[in-house]
Design a protein around this nucleic acid. Sequence first.
RNA 1: GGUGGGGUGGCCGAGUGGCUAAUGGCAGCAGACUGUAAAUCUGCCGCGCUUUGCGCUACGUAGGUUCGAAUCCUACCCCCACCA
Length: 376
Amino acid sequence: MFSFDLHATDGLARAGTLTLPHGAVQTPAFMPVGTHGTVRGLHPEEVRRTGAQIILGNTYHLHLRPGEAVVQALGGLHRFTTWDRPMLTDSGGFQVFSLEGLRKIAEEGVEFVSHLDGSRRTITPESAMEIQWALGADIAMAFDHVVPGQATRALAEEGLERTLRWLDRCKQRHAELTADGSLQTLWPIIQGGTHDDLRQRSIAGILERGPWTGIAIGGLSVGEPKPVMHRVLEGLNPALPTDVPRYLMGVGFPDDLLEGIARGVDLFDCVAATRNGRHGSAWTSTGKVNIRAAPHRLSEAPLDADCDCETCQRFSRAYLRHLFMAEEMLGLRLVSIHNIRFLIRLGEQARLAILAGRFDRFRHDWLARYHPRGAP
RNA sequence: GGUGGGGUGGCCGAGUGGCUAAUGGCAGCAGACUGUAAAUCUGCCGCGCUUUGCGCUACGUAGGUUCGAAUCCUACCCCCACCA
């Protein structure tokens, strides 16, 4: 039920197939984020038509609202949301990082002050497993301790060691919960900040506790410079098993996907596609475009002439700009659809290039056209 | 015709002698966003320049008081309400 077939490698880049209870995922692949059990703004059919093979949900947010008991009573996340393809739930570990100031970390777990009503909520490794098991996604993530990219070595070490100790508890509780034959797998998360030796220690600790059906790389793209992230990713490769998919959590932008794939990453997720889409920022093959910008006022051109998404097939930049200026929700949705399709297609193209043994050339040519700070 | 209120930067609207090129909001312009506390946030927003500063023009119009006026006085023009 949980397997990964590696079809080809090209340098460090890999093309494979991840098989999960709700279907297969051709990698490399981008996974849209659906925090509250919905990819913000989009109908599941629209998400499906972007080519998305798997989407995320979030433990912390779904625990606060509507509560995992509700989701479970309604048949689990798949049935509740009607998304019938694979799903992965993040553990709430990222909220330990992003809700700094609203939480207190202890060895037992993390106490959050709910951003919704101020109530105190505790998430422990065990409860993170219980919540995710009740939600019922194909993949549950270990509850981890994420530290900022500029964290000191001491803090990064504390985060990675705690994440390993919590992993033992996650693994144990998850095994108990799935002893009934529940089809859900647990993936561990590598921490260690920007320190290569700490990353090695994290991997070693994780592999000791294996085997795993997938391994995630956490704590990147949290404030560190891109070259540092690249260096850390490269350093991981010699220690990572090749027959297990690697998931780079929270990344990223189009150039990050290519750089990650070039360094052996198989799976990505990122909120930027939808958040930036809602904010009117679109990715195109030549770079970022702010659709609210005045020059698009009379443009009949699509966001990206090379894009096959539903938005680009049908709507002009002028119309999209108008929708944003008028604060019509359709605009937010259309650019979100475009951005998601853009990343998913990038994964598809990278896969084909890897299978054809020409990934490096593809990546080089693609990045040469792409201006991350804005299309010319 | 009378009485009262009012005319402020693209719009709305604060401001009643110096701290005012003038609070706010809107509109506009530009930027940010990476396991979602985000359909959010930030900056610019009279004109010109050698732009951390300088010059010019500006609070209905004209004149006056004052060292100094969007703020006080006079006249005029216009708008609104009510009364004839």
